[in-house]
Design a binder for these strands. Structure first.
Length: 853
RNA sequence: GCCCGAGUGGCGGAACGGUAGACGCAGCGGAUUCAAAAUCCGCCGCCUUCACGGGCGUGAGAGUUCGAAUCUCUCCUCGGGCACCA
C-alpha cells in the first residue's frame, strides 16, 4: 500500500484543477451565484500564517458553495500602494514599483501551493494604472456630484525632514527618522463628504443581519449619533469683536455644575490671543507639539491656561466662568470649545482639582452620601438620581430625562437649541506621498481647481523619481508637476498629493466583478456578482475599512457604478482571529532582548535552548506573529515539510475561527499524523475485497449521516474547529466499525468529501482511490438523510436541586406525565425525597429533569 | 483616556439557559518490535476514598433562574480600534 506523500499528490491535483478550469468564475444566469472574498493582502513580500488562515477559511466556503451548486466568484488581488514601499526605496534604494511588483510575484508563488480555489484570471494590484486610472475617473465623478471638497486640516509635521508624518511615524512626539519634536501643521487637503451619509450609514447597520454584533456596535459608536444642546456663552469684555463662545454639549443636565469654559489652542479666540500674549503663544505652541491622534490627546497630561477672560452663565448673568485654553480639546471636534463639569466627569474633575476651580454637584445618588469634592459622581444615563440643581423640570428622575428637559427649557427661553450631531468626521484622503493614486486635478491660477480630462486618465505616477531626500518626490518633479490647465490651457500645476490607500481598498471588491472593464465597473457583471455574499478578514478593519467601503458603495451608486442593491456591499461578514506564536528571547551583554526564530530553538528537558549554542532561551507567551519579535513560522517551510493540506487542516482545527490560534509545532505534527491515518484507513477500505459482515452497517450509516449533518452545519456557521472535531470522531468510528465493505466504502467516500473543503488535495486522492466519479471538487455535496438523524430513545439526566444525580433512558416521545412517574420511581430520587414529595418537578422534554426539594 | 471583544483541565478548545471538559495535543499504562521510530489499544479536571461514592470546579465578586461557562451588574487581566500602519 502506498503512503500519503503530499509533495507528490498536491501538485498533481492542482494541475488537474487548472486543467479543468475548476475555479474560473463564470457568469451563469441559470445558477445562483456566490461571491466569497477575503480581505486582500498588502504585498509585504512574504505570506504569513495569518494569510494562510484567512484564505483557507474563504477557500472552505468557496469550495463548499461550489459543491452546493453555486457559481462561485473567489478572486485575489493586492492592496499595493502604501508607505512600506517608499520606506524600502529610502532604505535600500530601488523603486517602490519594482519592490512592490517583486513582492507580488513572490507572494503569489508562495500562495499557489496552498491549492486555493482562486480565479487567478481576475487578479490585479491597486498600483496597476488600469486600476487607479478607474479610481481617478470615479474621483472626478464624485467631484461632479459634490462628494469631494477641500479644507484645511491638521497634520503631523517633521520640521527637520520637512515632511508630513503618519501617526505611526511619530514616536513619543518625535519624528521616527529625524528625532525632531513633531509639530501640528495646517494644510489644505481633499475630503470625502462621508458625514453627509452619517445618518444613513448608521441606520443601515440595522439591516446588516449577518454581520457580527460587535462590529455593528463599534460602527454605531464610531458614527456616534448624539442628542445635545447647542448654545453659546457670552464673553465679558471679549477682545476684537469676539463676543461669544459657541458650545455643543450632550450633557446640558449638568450645566448648573459648570466650572469653566475650555477652548482648543486652535480656536479662533485662542489664535487671536496668542498674537498679543506671549504666554498664550508659548502655551499654544506647547500644545501643538503633540501628535494629532485622539489616543495621544486623551492620554496626555491635561494642561490648561487661564486666559483671564470670563463668560456669563446662560442661566444666571451674575455667574461668571473663567475661560481656559486646554490641550485636550481639538478644533476638529464639535465647536472646539466645551464647558467643564467637574462634579460628574472624571477629566473635568482632574482639571478643576489641578487649577483650583470649584466642584459643584447637580445630582447625587438616590440614597447614601457622595462627596463630589473627592470623586465625580457618574451614574448610568438611565439610573434614577436625586437632583440638587436642575436646569428645568421638576419631575425628571434620570439624566436622560434631565437632558431633554434642559433642552426644552433652553429652547423656550431662547438660550440654545436641541440638535442631533454625529461624531463621524469627513474622510481626509490627501497624502503627501509618492506611492499612491494621484489625485487627478490641476491647479490653475485662472480657473482654480480643475479636474483632469477623463480622456487623459490615468494620471500615471512618473517612474523617474528619487528617494534620496525625505518628502514627496512628486513635489520636486517639474516635468510631471507642470502641465497645461485642462480647461484654459494656460500653464498650471498638477496636484501632487496622492490618495489614502483606504480609497484603493474601498471598491476593489466591485472591480473584481469586471477586472478588465474600461469603466470602473460593468453594470451587468456587478449586477450578477454583487453583493459579496461572504467577506472575511481581520477584526482590526472593523471600523475604518468597512465604513469607508460602505460609503464608497453609496457614492458609486450615485455615480452609476453600482446597482442600488449594492449600497451595502457585504451581505455577510466574518472577522477572524490572529495566528500567534510563543516568543523566544535571550539577552545580549547590555541586557537588551535578542529574539530568535522558532526553527532555531530546541526543546530539552531543562527547557528551551538555542539549537546552535545550547544557550537557554526565555519563552514569552504567545503573541501575534511579527517580524520584529521573530515569532514567525514561514508557511512555505510548513508546506514543504508537511504539505498544504496539513497547514490548512491545522489552522482550521484547533481554535474557533474568530479567536486567535496559537501555532505550535506539535499541533502541525498532529494534523499531519491524522491526515496520514485517514489516508491509510481509506486505502485499506479501497483495497478490501467483496462484502464483509453487514450487521454494523446501519450504525455506520447513522454515524455518517449525523456527521454529514454536523459538518455541513459547522461549515455554514463558521464552526470549522467543531466540524473538524466531528470529522475526527467519524474517522475513529469508521476505523473501528465492523460494517461491510460496501458500507465502509460509502462512509469513506463521504469522509473524503466532507473533508474536501479543508483538505482538497488529500480528498481528491481518496475520492479517486475509492472510485469516485471525476473530481471531488465541485461534486454535489452529500445530503444528510433525516431518517438517520433521529434516535428512538433519549437519556435524560435527573438533577436534584440542580445537581446531576441520576439518569433515565426513555422513549423519545414519552409523555411528560409518564416521565414524571418514572423519575419519582428512580432510586436516587426516592432516596433524596426520603418519603416526602418534591416541591417542584421540572421536565424539559428530551433534555433534562430537575427535582426541587 | 474612550469604544469593542476575550478569559473553561498541564495545553488548544467543546457545550440551543439544561449531564461542564466533545475532539485534539501533552502525559501515563499496555500491545507490537532484538531495539527504536511508526502504528494500535486503554487511562487521563482537582481534592478525598481500598472501593462504592462524596466534595470542589468555567478570571474575581454579587445578582436573575428550578437550573448560569452561557443572561445582568461591578472589578481584574489580556487583545483589537481610536480617523495618516495596512
Amino acid at each position: 500500500m502506498s503512503r500519503y506523500t503530499a509533495s507528490e499528490i498536491e501538485p498533481k491535483w492542482q494541475a488537474a484543477w487548472d486543467e479543468a478550469q475548476s475555479f474560473l468564475a463564470r457568469r451563469d444566469p441559470a445558477r445562483p451565484k456566490y461571491y466569497v472574498l477575503e480581505m486582500f493582502p498588502y504585498p509585504s513580500g512574504r505570506i504569513h500564517m495569518g494569510h494562510v488562515r484567512n484564505y483557507t477559511m474563504g477557500d472552505v466556503i468557496a469550495r463548499y458553495k461550489m459543491s452546493c451548486g453555486f457559481s462561485v466568484l473567489h478572486p485575489m488581488g493586492w492592496d499595493a500602494f502604501g508607505m512600506p514601499a517608499e520606506n524600502a526605496a529610502m532604505e535600500r534604494g530601488g523603486h517602490p514599483k519594482d519592490w512592490t511588483y517583486g513582492n507580488i510575484a513572490d507572494m503569489r508563488a508562495q500562495m499557489k501551493p496552498l491549492g486555493l480555489s482562486i480565479d487567478w484570471s481576475r487578479e490585479f494590484a491597486t498600483c496597476d494604472p488600469e486600476y487607479y486610472g478607474q479610481q481617478q475617473s470615479m474621483f472626478i465623478d464624485f467631484m461632479d456630484k459634490g462628494l469631494v471638497y477641500r479644507k484645511a486640516a491638521t497634520v503631523n509635521w517633521d520640521p527637520v525632514d520637512m515632511t508630513v508624518l503618519a501617526n505611526e511615524q511619530v514616536i513619543d512626539g518625535k519624528g521616527w527618522r529625524s528625532g525632531a519634536p513633531v509639530e501640528r501643521r495646517e494644510l489644505t487637503q481633499w475630503f470625502f463628504k462621508i458625514s453627509d451619509f452619517s445618518e444613513e450609514l448608521l441606520d443601515a447597520i440595522d439591516g446588516l443581519d449577518s454581520w457580527p454584533e460587535k462590529v455593528k456596535l463599534m460602527q454605531r459608536n464610531w458614527i456616534g449619533r448624539s442628542r445635545g444642546l447647542q448654545f453659546s456663552f457670552s464673553l465679558i469684555d471679549g477682545p476684537h469683536g469676539h463676543d461669544r463662545i459657541e458650545v455643543y454639549t450632550t450633557r446640558p443636565d449638568t450645566l448648573m455644575g459648570a466650572s469653566f469654559v475650555g477652548i482648543s489652542p486652535d480656536h479662533p479666540l485662542a489664535r487671536m490671543l496668542e498674537r498679543e500674549n506671549p504666554e498664550v503663544a508659548a502655551f499654544n505652541a506647547e500644545c501643538r507639539r503633540m501628535g494629532t491622534s485622539e489616543e495621544e490627546l486623551e492620554k496626555a497630561e491635561k494642561l490648561g491656561l487661564d486666559t483671564g477672560l470670563s463668560v456669563r452663565h446662560p442661566f444666571d448673568t451674575a455667574w461668571e466662568l473663567p475661560v481656559y485654553i486646554a490641550n485636550f480639546i481639538l478644533m476638529d471636534y464639535g465647536t472646539g470649545a466645551i464647558f467643564g463639569c467637574p462634579g460628574h466627569d472624571q477629566r473635568d474633575h482632574d482639571f478643576c482639582r489641578k487649577y483650583g476651580l470649584p466642584i459643584i454637584d447637580t445630582f447625587l445618588p438616590l440614597d447614601g452620601d457622595w462627596d463630589v469634592q473627592a470623586d465625580p459622581y457618574v451614574p448610568a444615563k438611565t439610573e434614577k438620581v436625586r437632583f440638587t440643581r436642575l436646569v428645568a423640570g421638576e419631575n425628571v428622575q434620570t439624566c436622560d430625562e434631565a437632558v431633554e428637559a434642559a433642552i426644552g427649557f433652553c429652547e423656550a427661553n431662547g438660550v440654545g437649541q436641541g440638535v442631533t450631531k454625529f461624531r463621524l468626521r469627513d474622510w481626509g484622503l490627501s497624502r503627501q506621498r509618492y506611492w499612491g493614486c494621484p489625485i487627478p486635478v490641476v491647479h490653475c491660477e485662472v480657473c482654480g481647481v480643475v479636474p483632469e480630462r477623463k480622456a487623459n486618465l490615468p494620471v500615471r505616477l512618473p517612474d523617474d523619481v528619487a528617494f534620496d531626500k525625505p518628502g514627496n518626490p512628486l513635489d520636486r518633479h517639474p516635468t510631471w508637476r507642470d502641465v497645461p490647465c485642462p480647461s484654459c490651457g494656460k500653464p498650471a500645476r498638477r496636484e501632487t498629493d496622492t490618495m489614502d490607500t483606504f480609497v484603493d481598498s474601498s471598491w476593489y471588491f466591485a472591480r473584481f466583478t469586471a477586472p478588465r472593464a474600461g469603466t470602473p465597473t460593468n453594470l451587468a457583471d456587478a449586477d450578477y456578482w454583487m453583493n459579496v455574499d461572504q467577506y472575511i478578514g481581520g477584526i482590526e478593519h472593523a471600523i475604518l475599512h468597512l465604513l469607508y467601503s460602505r460609503f464608497f458603495a453609496r457614492a458609486m451608486h450615485i455615480c452609476g457604478h453600482l446597482p442600488a442593491k449594492s449600497i451595502e456591499p457585504f451581505d455577510a461578514l466574518f472577522t477572524q482571529g490572529m495566528v500567534t506564536h510563543e516568543i523566544y528571547v535571550t539577552r545580549d551583554e547590555r541586557d537588551r532582548p535578542v529574539y530568535h526564530l522558532p526553527e532555531h530553538v530546541e526543546w530539552h528537558e531543562s527547557g528551551a535552548r538555542l539549537g546552535a549554542t545550547g544557550e537557554p532561551v526565555e519563552v514569552i507567551p504567545s503573541a501575534k506573529m511579527s517580524k520584529s519579535k521573530k515569532n514567525v513560522v514561514d508557511p512555505e517551510n510548513i508546506i514543504r515539510q508537511y504539505g498544504a493540506d496539513t497547514a490548512r487542516w491545522f489552522v482550521l482545527s484547533d481554535s474557533p475561527p474568530e479567536r486567535d490560534v496559537e501555532w505550535t509545532a506539535a499541533g502541525a505534527e498532529a494534523a499531519a499524523k491524522h491526515l496520514a491515518r485517514v489516508y491509510r484507513l481509506a486505502a485499506e477500505i479501497a483495497d478490501a475485497p467483496g462484502e464483509g459482515p453487514q450487521g454494523a452497517d446501519e450504525d455506520l450509516r447513522r454515524a455518517m449521516h449525523r456527521t454529514i449533518h454536523d459538518v455541513t452545519m459547522g461549515i455554514e456557521s463558521f464552526g470549522f474547529n467543531a466540524a473538524i472535531a466531528k470529522l475526527y470522531a467519524f474517522s475513529n468510528t469508521l476505523a473501528k466499525s465492523g460494517a461491510g465493505a460496501t458500507a465502509k466504502r460509502e462512509a469513506a467516500r463521504a469522509l473524503a468529501q466532507l473533508m474536501s473543503p479543508m483538505t482538497p488535495h488529500l480528498s481528491e486522492e481518496l475520492w479517486h482511490l475509492l472510485g469516485g466519479e471525476g473530481l471531488v471538487t465541485g461534486a454535489p455535496w452529500p445530503r444528510a438523510d433525516a431518517a438517520y438523524l433521529v434516535e428512538d430513545t433519549v437519556t435524560l439526566p435527573i438533577q436534584i436541586n440542580g445537581k446531576r444525580r441520576s439518569e433515565i433512558t426513555v422513549a423519545r416521545d414519552l409523555s411528560k406525565e409518564e416521565v414524571e412517574k418514572l423519575v419519582l420511581a428512580d432510586n436516587a430520587v426516592l432516596k433524596a425525597l426520603d418519603g416526602g414529595a418534591p416541591r417542584k418537578l421540572i421536565v424539559v422534554p428530551g433534555r433534562i429533569v430537575n427535582v426541587v426539594l
